[in-house]
Amino acid sequence: MTEDLRALMRAELNNERPPPLGDVVGAALRDGRRIKRRRRRAGMAGAGAAGLIAVVLFGTVAAHSEPRRAVVADPAAAPALPSPASPAAMARAAQKVSPGSVPVTVSPPATVAPERSLTVHSGMERAAGPRKKATTGAMLHLLTQLLPPGRTSHAAVSGNEDPYVQIYLDRGDGPGMIRVVLGQLPEDPRPPRGGTATVSVLRGENNCVQDTVVVSRWPDGTAVQLDLASCLQDERPGRVVLTDDEATAIAADPRWGLSMDADLVDQGDKRYGGSPVFTS
């Protein structure tokens, strides 16, 4: 019976006219390699999200900030630091900063308020309207819209086209310096922006330019970092001019991103297009 059944199946198969097999093996190899790459990236992103945030933001910020020692969540990034911290300082910093934190200044700070991390719902997935690549002019324009009332001055931008800006704010009791830098983690595939940012508030030490660092991170990898300085650019005394809550609200504003509202970009370029370059 078995042989008869098999013979019947084969006889019918012989009457079939199958199309050419095609390159199924090549296609399977290509698909398989792509999936492997994606899995590797997903694994790396999952395991080292904190490290990547550190690398991305530190890479952007470090080049323009005061010479400072940085805390690196990913130890592998340490050799790349321009001013490596002493082992003791790095150890202190590692204890201080949680794995999910971003690069901040080294070590045990003269903490004014406790560090914290919170989730901020923006209530919107993404600002509506056409988008354009963010410019430093747009960043300054948006920043001035978000700052509390006060006199702004010393608007300046990074010298090497990084999305990194600076401004002074005087709320009546003296100026304070604020710097903002944007970054984005590599994601493949990139998830949607999402309507919720995770914001970390961190304290620095021995680096007046980053007295307080507020970082917001979005599901699509976008990160916004606000450095609140306790000194001015030339290291004259200054003051931290924003509260943690104010800085958090600014960093978590959904309009930040490597692409921004087109009108905002146009207005920002018009208003701040010729801003001077600041030096670290």
Partner: peptide, 30 residues
């Protein structure tokens, strides 16, 4: 691959689907 596609065809009786199934199976095998 040819043998796998034949088995797939026996299962689904559609050569094009059999080809897709074979490719998916080979991807998973890889």
């Amino acid at each position: 691959a040819e043998r796998l596609r034949t088995t797939a065809f026996m299962l689904c009786r559609d050569w094009h689907l059999a080809q897709d199934l074979t490719q998916n199976a080979l991807t998973k095998l890889f």
